[in-house]
Every structure is written in C-alpha cells, then in structure tokens.
Design a protein around this nucleic acid. Structure first.
Lengths: 211, 211
DNA sequence: GCCTGATTCAAACGTACGTTTGAATGAAGG
DNA sequence: CCTTCATTCAAACGTACGTTTGAATCAGGC
C-alpha cells in the first residue's frame, strides 16, 4: 500500500517553484528535491522540462477556462436576448482566476501567481502555450465585452482589453506586494473584495468616453 | 584612433537581449557575441552579470525618473495652490516611460520593453533594484495622485495604483502584441495615442465611485 | 514461481553557464 | 626606449543544467 503519487508530487512541486522563481529560473533538480523523487522520473512521466511546464498549466487552466465559459453562458442565459452588463462579463472573466487563491485544491494562490507571471513571460514557447489555452475563452468573451460597450470604437476597445490583461495579470502575479506597499490598508486575502475592486476599476475604464 | 566603446557596446547589446528574452534567459556569451567583444570585458567593466543588469537599468532609469519628477513639478508650478488634475499627474507618470519608444537615443522601444518586464520579474534582486530606483518617484507621485482624487478611500486608492502599475507595465512590455491581437486596429507605434488611451482608461478607473 | 511491463534509481552524458587567470596589446609619459 | 597602466584576448576553471542510460525494483497475471 505504498500508493506514492510520483506524477502528482512532481506537478505540485513544479507548480510551487515555477510560481515562486519563474519557470526559467527553476531547475529540475530543485523540483525533484522538493518532491522527493528521482531525477529521471520527470522525463519518464513528462518527457521534458517544457512538457512538464505544459502539464502544470493544463491541469489548472482547463477547468479554470471551463468555469469562465460556464459563468458567461449562465449570464447570457439569465439575460435572454438582452445584453449582459459589462460588470457581469468582467466578473465571469477575472473572478474565476482571482478566486483560485481561495481554493488550495486548485493550486491556490500559487497557481494564480504562476498564471499571472506567464502573461509576462518572454519565452515564445510559453506564450504559444498560453495563447492556445486562451483561444476559446478569448473567442467567447471578446464579443460579449463588445456587446456590453457597443458605442466604443474598436480601437479604444482593444486598447482597453490590453490594459485589462495587464491589470489582471499583475494582480494575479503580485497581489501580495500590495499588502506592504499599501501599508496594510489593502488585504489581498479578501478575494471577493479584490475581485470587486478590479471589476469596478475595469468597468469604469471601459465605460470612459473615447477621445 | 580606434575609439572603440566596449563598455557602451556591451550595455547596448545587453539591453537589447535582456529585453527580448529576459535577463535570466540571456547569457553573457550571447551578449558578447552580439557586441563583438571579449567575454572577460564584461567582468572587467562591470564586475558581474548582475552589476551589468543594474548598469543597463540605471543608464535609462535615472534620466527617465528625473523627467517624470520634472514634469510633475512643472504641473504643480503651473497650478499654484490648486490641485493638479488627475490626468496631468498620470501623464507625467506614464508619458515619459511610454515615450521612450520614440527616442532611440534613450533605448527606444527596447528599453521600454525591458522596464515593463522588470516589473513582473520574480527575481528578488531585480525587484530590490527597481524598488530603489522608483522610491523617489513613488514618494512624489502618490501624494499628488491622492490629492487628485481626494474623496477616494485609501483602500480603493492603493488597489487602483496596483492596477495602474499592471496596465502600464504590460503596455510597456508588450504593446507590440496588441497590433496583431487587434487585427491591426491598434498601432503601438503611435506613442501619443497610446499615452492618451492609457491615461484616459486610468483616469476613468481612478474616478470610479467606490463601493 | 516466474514472467512481464511499468516504475524507480544511481550514475553518467554532453553542453552551457558565470567567472577567473595570465599573457598579449596598445597608447601615453618620462 | 623603456616603463606604466588600462584594456583586450584566448583559454581554462568549476559548477549546474537538461537529458539519457541501463540496471534494480515492484506489482499483478498466468
């Protein structure tokens, strides 16, 4: 009855270390030392460091993106033929990602940080992987957002999507920094407050008059 | 009359490669090969890879931050005892950084990208360096921003600073991505338009009613 | 009890890294 | 001309990396 879950142990250790130091700055030897498994086990189970990274991301991203799409569909169902309000769409998009920090079974704050970092990662391999994972989400959310701000010129609209991604990624990657920076006035552990602040900020930004 | 500027060549090559692949993923050998200098020259002139990185950043950041402070002071002088409007403060903060891309003598889009990446860098050494370089700017701009939105509760205020940093950093690090993502509708080469879009977005976000 | 296939393991592979060394080079001063 | 000092250079240092290998271990089926 050993039941040692080598594969899962590697995934968990890799997730934690990738998030803390970045994928490039994390070595396989650090991972296997933390997971207490043999070095060759990584290549046996995953094939390469790059495939391991992909597995780390997929494990969490697939359900996360499914949740985003489900929330959006729920809103669209609830609103029938009417347009889903901007704040509802934004909440369906950023809520599941930020809420990760409240769910240790899904990686908790650790994976949230890793996901935030990946948005900023220069490595084209990681970029391609992320783009692929986000393709469906983008395809569904962009039209929904556009319907929510129908009078906004397309150029403004895409700039604001860009700012949205930046604000969201930075919040995911480094919410903890805000605690000290704000002198304790902000508490990143209060996830729902964090979501409200972000959605509130983004909503106002999206609704700004174009110039 | 050789006049070869080894030190400058290294700085330029390092800046370009650090920005393109990230400091951690760039090796000294890639840098010296691009700069066409000897490997030992890096340690002769800079001492270590880390010091080189610091030199790369300081060369641009010192004048950049000076420009930010000068613009802010100019606004404060122009407005006398009245409060400097939010958009003016934001422009003084993000304008000089985004305008880098128009000034090849100051590193152009290359350094802008590197600076954006550094905000997201996990490496504590880089974080400490950035914090130190930004200390004076933060100390001057935060009160100015706070005066510009005096009715905003402090908790909201600091969250929005956080979102501001994320949107700005992402815009600096990856404005080019928006060109393809928007299907050509957005043109990151038009720096002044980029600044307007960002300031417009951030202003609306900062002015949003607290909930 | 042995065979089979999946898993674990210690050891080594070749490569690339940041850094150091010590000699060669080159211009300036006496 | 010789010394001096800063700079450049080729070569090597030791270390760490991702990956591969082949044998050891283990479980379950016949």
């Amino acid at each position: 009855m050993k039941m040692k879950d080598t594969k899962g142990d590697i995934l968990n250790a890799a997730e934690r270390l990738f998030a803390a130091r970045g994928p490039h700055a994390t070595s396989l030897r650090q991972i296997i030392s933390s997971a207490k498994v043999n070095l060759a086990a990584v290549h046996y189970h995953f094939g390469s460091k790059e495939s391991l990274m992909q597995a780390v991301m997929s494990r969490r991203l697939v359900p996360l993106n499914a949740e985003r799409l489900a929330l959006l569909e729920e809103q669209e169902r609830a609103h029938g033929r009417r347009v889903v309000p901007l704040a509802k769409v934004l909440t369906a998009l950023v809520g599941p990602a930020l809420r990760l920090s409240r769910n240790p079974k899904k990686g908790g704050v650790v994976f949230m940080q890793l996901l935030g970092r990946c948005f900023m990662e220069p490595d084209p391999k990681i970029q391609a992987m992320l783009d692929q994972q986000l393709q469906e989400v983008a395809g569904r959310f962009i039209p929904a957002l556009q319907r929510a701000v129908p009078k906004l010129p397309e150029e403004d609209f895409f700039w604001r999507i860009h700012f949205l991604v930046g604000a969201m990624a930075h919040t995911m990657a480094d919410a903890e920094r805000l605690r000290t920076f704000s002198g304790g006035r902000c508490n990143p552990d209060d996830t729902e407050a964090m979501i409200d602040h972000l959605v509130n900020f983004l909503s106002a930004g999206f609704k700004a008059k174009s110039r």
